[in-house]
Amino acid sequence: MANNTVTNTNATDTALDMSVWAGRTDPEPNSERWHQKIQPLSQTAAPGCALLGFESDAGVARNQGRIGAAKGPAALRKALAPLAWHRTGPAYDAGNVRCEGDALEAAQQKLADQLSALLEAEHFPIVLGGGHEVAYGSWLGLAQHLANKGERAPRIGIINFDAHFDLRDPSHVRSSGTPFTQIADQCAQRGWPFRYACLGVSRAANTRALFHRAAELGVMIREDRDFQPAYLERIQRDLERFMVRCDHLYLSIDLDVLPTGEAPGVSAPAARGVSLSLLEPLIEIIRDSGKLRLADLAELNPDHDIDSRTARTAARLVFQLSQ
């Protein structure tokens, strides 16, 4: 297919740069911050939280969005560096996978291979995007890991906080708008169940065709207008019922689910969005379920960020997920 032609077939690992982990050092005891505690990943590292960047704009460019998300991993690390350290286990920087040019498929496979290795080493990976094309590589890494363990039909629950379904037809072009259709197709080929919850969907930003496809695939849908304090407990119960039917969870957070005031630096800013105060309790439930194997954050675009608001919000989300 012409629109999927790869013009540059390279997917590379960029050199690990720990200099981004910098900030203030306080003299009081127990005053460490992330920049003081995070370590470069080694092959002998004890299991911990492993941050892996995905430097890619290719999927956003194919989806005709505003590019710049390839710079997201560096901006997120910079925002995370000064945050207070409250973890009891170690955290590691595992470097970046870089998509060169339009070589999206090669980069997604490279990401999958690295994630599979991290999971094999019993780390909890958090992928720092990058466009939401990261989702296909993330899921593929978890799928490879579970297949290597001999799980024949694992029930992987995908929880996506997003203003968009990202269920567009990949037969035309594979992009940041197609990863969950690609995952559904992979599940069908493997004979695995497809379990997908999309929370924060904007009806104004998704066509009737996409809502129809979501219904056909049995997607759990909660629209952005459903996210009100009075309804939060109901959404929590719905989410818990979804998780009970899953063996493993993969969490994807597209930062465009947030209001523009909280996350201006994304590919497609939300006209309404779901506030961080409503997302955090749900993320904590997912984190504490005992089933979360992998998480990623997508669409941080520093070129359009204001006062690093989006980067700071993303850093807080990584902070919450890593506790």
Rank of each mutant, 00 (worst) to 15 (best):
V173D: 03
Y250D: 00
F194K: 11
F161A: 04
A230H: 13
S252G: 08
G273R: 10
R225Q: 14
D247F: 01
A215L: 11
V201N: 09
Y196R: 05
I156A: 02
R195E: 12
R208Y: 15
F194D: 10
A197I: 11
D247M: 01
A271D: 13
Q189C: 06
I235F: 06
T181K: 05
F227M: 11
P281H: 01
L217H: 04
A184R: 10
V257E: 10
R195M: 14
A268G: 08
L199I: 07
I253M: 07
S175T: 15
C187V: 07
P170L: 09
R222F: 10
N148A: 15
A268R: 09
S275A: 13
T207Q: 11
Y196V: 06
G261P: 09
Q186Y: 10
D169P: 14
H248I: 02
R222E: 12
E151V: 09
P264H: 04
R190L: 15
L258N: 00
R155H: 11
L239M: 08
Q189T: 14
C198H: 08
R168H: 12
D256C: 06
A204D: 15
L142C: 07
I235S: 09
I253A: 01
Q144R: 15
R190I: 03
L249Y: 06
C198G: 04
H248G: 00
F194W: 08
C187Y: 05
T178H: 03
R272M: 11
D247L: 00
I183T: 05
T260S: 14
L276S: 14
D166P: 08
E223S: 12
L167Q: 06
A204P: 05
E280K: 15
S277V: 09
R225P: 00
S252Y: 01
L278D: 04
G200Y: 11
S275M: 02
D162W: 00
A188P: 06
D224R: 04
S277I: 01
F165T: 06
Q144W: 02
F180R: 06
I159S: 02
P229W: 10
D169V: 13
Q186H: 14
A230N: 12
V244N: 12
I253F: 02
D254M: 00
I235D: 08
A271S: 14
P193V: 08
R225G: 00
Q144T: 04
H172G: 11
S176D: 03
A268P: 01
Q189H: 14
F194G: 10
C246A: 08
V274I: 09
L142M: 12
D256Q: 08
R152W: 00
A147S: 15
L258Y: 12
F165A: 03
V244A: 15
D162Y: 00
R245P: 00
R168E: 05
D238S: 12
R190Y: 09
A204V: 13
H212C: 07
D238N: 12
Y250F: 11
L199F: 07
I156H: 01
G218R: 03
T178Q: 08
D254L: 02
D169F: 13
A205F: 13
L217G: 09
D166T: 04
A204N: 14
F242T: 09
